[in-house]
Amino acid sequence: KLETFPLDVLVNTAAEDLPRGVDPSRKENHLSDEDFKAVFGMTRSAFANLPLWKQQNLKKEKGLF
């Protein structure tokens, strides 16, 4: 399991300012399950079932792209 970080560490943070080991294209993977659901309004599995373009739009909207 990946290390999780608080939302404010990941949202609207440039790649070079992210904690070590965080993939800038997969910031959402480093949210706790609770934060993930609070941000996206759905579970990880529901998010994973969305088309890629919709996932990317949601990530942009939430500052996690």
Rank of each mutant, 00 (worst) to 15 (best):
Q55D: 00
V9I: 12
K37F: 11
N57A: 13
L50F: 05
D8M: 03
E61M: 09
M42L: 08
L2C: 06
A15S: 12
P6Y: 02
L18S: 05
S25A: 12
D17R: 07
E61S: 11
E34V: 13
R26Q: 14
S25C: 10
W53Y: 11
F47N: 00
Q56R: 11
F36L: 01
A14G: 11
R44G: 01
E3Q: 13
L31D: 00
A46K: 14
D35Q: 08
N57E: 15
L7G: 08
F5A: 08
F5C: 11
P24W: 04
D8E: 15
N12E: 10
W53R: 10
P19L: 03
A15I: 12
L10D: 07
R20T: 13
D23P: 02
E3V: 14
E16S: 10
N57H: 12
K1R: 06
D23Q: 02
P51M: 03
F40P: 01
E16I: 05
G21V: 05
L52D: 14
A48K: 10
T4W: 02
V22G: 03
E34C: 10
A46Q: 11
D23L: 05
L50H: 00
H30W: 11
P24G: 08
G41M: 12
P24E: 11
K37C: 12
F40A: 03
E61C: 08
K59T: 03
S32F: 01
K60E: 14
D17Y: 04
K1V: 05
L10C: 01
F40Q: 05
K59V: 02
G41P: 00
R44H: 07
P24Q: 08
R26V: 10
E61Q: 10
D35I: 01
A38K: 13
L64K: 08
V22W: 03
K37E: 09
R26G: 08
E16P: 11
T13F: 04
T4Q: 07
V9H: 11
Q56G: 05
T4Y: 13
R20N: 14
R26C: 14
L52W: 11
V9Q: 08
L31G: 02
L50Y: 04
F36S: 02
V9W: 08
E3D: 05
V9C: 10
T43R: 07
A15Q: 07
D33M: 00
K37H: 14
F36I: 00
D23N: 10
L64Q: 04
F5T: 12
S32I: 03
E61I: 08
L50S: 01
Q56V: 13
E28I: 09
K62N: 09
L18M: 13
E28M: 07
H30G: 06
L7F: 07
K37I: 08
D17T: 06
S32D: 09
L7S: 06
K60S: 12
R26N: 15
K60I: 08
P24T: 06
L10H: 01
L10E: 08
F40R: 01
K54G: 02
Q56T: 10
V11S: 06
K59L: 05
N12P: 03
S45D: 13
M42F: 04
G41T: 03
